[in-house]
Simulated assay, not measured.
Amino acid sequence: MSTLNLIATATFGLESIVAGELKSLGYENLTIENARVTFPGDELSLCRANIMLRTADRIRLKVGEFKATTFDELFEKTKALPWPEIIPANAQFPVDGKSVKSTLFSVSDCQAIVKKAVVESMKRKYKIQWFEEKGPLYKIEVALLKDVATLTIDTSGPGLHKRGYRELTSTAPLRETLAAALVILSKWYPDTTLIDPLCGSGTIPIEAALIGQNIAPGIYRDFTADNWPNVPKSAWKKAREEAYDNIKRQKLDIIGTDLHGPSIKLARINAAKFKLDQDIHFQQLNLSDLSSRKKFGKIICNPPYGERLGDLPDVEKLYREMGKVFNQLDTWSYYILTSHPEFEKFFGKKASKKRKLYNGKIKVDYYQYYGARPSKRNYQQ
C-alpha cells in the first residue's frame, strides 16, 4: 500500500469536528459527507488517525466506489478491485453490509456476492482454490447508498470510543467520542474550571482531562490493523511515539459530581486507569449544593432525557432545578445535552445556540449558554 483513501466515520452532526481534528493533524483535501470524512494518506496516517482522533467512530480503508444496480454489476466491479494487493492469502475477510435507498436492497445477497467476488480476485493472484482464513482480520463492508456501492476494510476493530478506561459503567453511559465532542464544542481551555454536576461514571470529565493533557485517546489500546503485515510495525511505533511526545502535563481544574455514590466510585476507578485521578476531583454531591468561588468556568453535562414516559415528571423537575442552580453561576457558560423538546421551558432560559446531534440513535440538542468572557483573554465562546 502507498497512497491510501481513508475514511473516518462519524456520528451525524460531528463530521465537521472530525474534519477539524484531521486538519490539526496536518491532513488536507478532506471530503466531508454525511457520517464520514474521507482523506488521503499513507500507512502512518492510518495509524495516527486510529490513535489520535477523539470524535471519529472508526477508520476505514476505502478500496473502491462505483454505481451498481444489478448483482452482476456488483460482482464484476468488486472483482476488479485490487483486493490481493491489500489482503494476504491467510487473512480472515468476512463481509458486512448495509443498503439505503438502493435497488440492491437485500443486504445478505450483497454480502454473499461481494465475498464471492473477493475470493475470485484472490484466486487469480494466489493460485489457490480455498482460503482457510486463519490469519489477520480484514473485515470488509459493502455500503450501498442510492445505488452507489462503497467497499471498505475496517482498520480499527472495536469502535474508537473504546478507549480502555471504561470497562465499568453506570446506567445509560455517554459514548466517549460524543463526550469529547461536547468538550471540543464548548471551546473549553485547560486553564478554565470545568464542572459536570451529573457526571455518572465520569466520561465527560475524563475526556476533558485527556484533551487538557493532550493525551491521545487510543494511546493505550490495540487496533485490528496492528496485525496487518502490510502496515509496518515501524508506522505504529512512530505514531505512538508521536502521541507520547505530544502529552502536555499541566494542572487542571476539572470537577465531576453526582448524587449517586456508586457512580462516583466508578468514575474514580475509570480515571485512575489513565492516571487522571489527580486531574479530576470527583465528589458525591446533590445538584442543589453545587457552587464555586471561581468567577468564570464551564458546566458541561448530559442529564437524563426522560425517554420513558413515567420518568418525565422527575426529569422536568431536574431541569427546573438545573436552571435555578446554574443561574447562580451567572458569569459561567453551560452546555447541556438532551432530547427533551421543551428543555428551555423547564430550564427557564433560552439557549444562546443549539446544535443538533445524535446520542446513539436518539436525536438530541446541545444547548449552549454563553456566559461572560474573562477580560484577560479575548476568546470566542
Rank of each mutant, 00 (worst) to 15 (best):
P341D: 10
V325P: 00
D365Y: 14
L329S: 08
Q380P: 01
K345R: 08
V364C: 09
K361E: 10
K349W: 03
G348W: 08
V325S: 06
M322I: 08
K345P: 00
F326T: 03
G371P: 01
K324A: 11
Y335S: 06
Y367E: 02
L337V: 05
Y370P: 02
S375C: 06
S333P: 03
K349F: 03
I362L: 15
Y334C: 08
L337W: 04
E342S: 05
G323F: 08
P374D: 13
K317R: 13
N359Y: 05
P374E: 15
K354L: 14
Q380N: 13
D330S: 15
V315M: 06
K317C: 07
K349R: 15
S339G: 02
Y369G: 04
A351E: 11
H340D: 05
K350W: 06
D365R: 15
E344R: 02
Y369K: 02
Y370H: 13
K350P: 01
E344V: 06
E316P: 00
L337E: 02
K361N: 11
S333H: 11
Y334P: 00
L329H: 10
M322C: 11
K354E: 14
S352I: 10
R373E: 12
A351N: 11
T331Q: 15
V364S: 04
Y334I: 00
W332Y: 05
K356I: 11
K349Q: 14
R355Q: 14
D365E: 15
N359G: 05
H340Y: 05
K317G: 01
K356F: 10
K354S: 07
K363L: 12
Q368R: 11
P341F: 11
G323R: 09
P313G: 06
Y369F: 15
T338V: 00
S339R: 03
I362Q: 09
K354Q: 15
A351G: 07
N359S: 13
S352E: 13
I362F: 07
N327G: 15
R355T: 09
K361I: 07
T338I: 05
Y335W: 10
G371V: 08
Y335A: 00
R373K: 14
Y367R: 01
Q368N: 04
G348R: 07
L357W: 01
N327H: 12
Y319S: 02
K353P: 00
Y335V: 01
N327E: 13
Y319Q: 03
A351R: 11
L329I: 06
R320F: 01
K356R: 14
D330R: 12
Q368W: 04
Y379N: 14
K361F: 06
Y334D: 06
Q380L: 15
A351T: 10
Q368I: 12
F346C: 00
P313M: 10
R377S: 11
R320G: 02
K376D: 13
R373I: 14
G348C: 08
N327Y: 07
G323E: 09
I362T: 12
K324D: 12
T338R: 04
D314W: 09
W332I: 08
K353A: 07
L318E: 07
S339A: 14
Y367M: 02
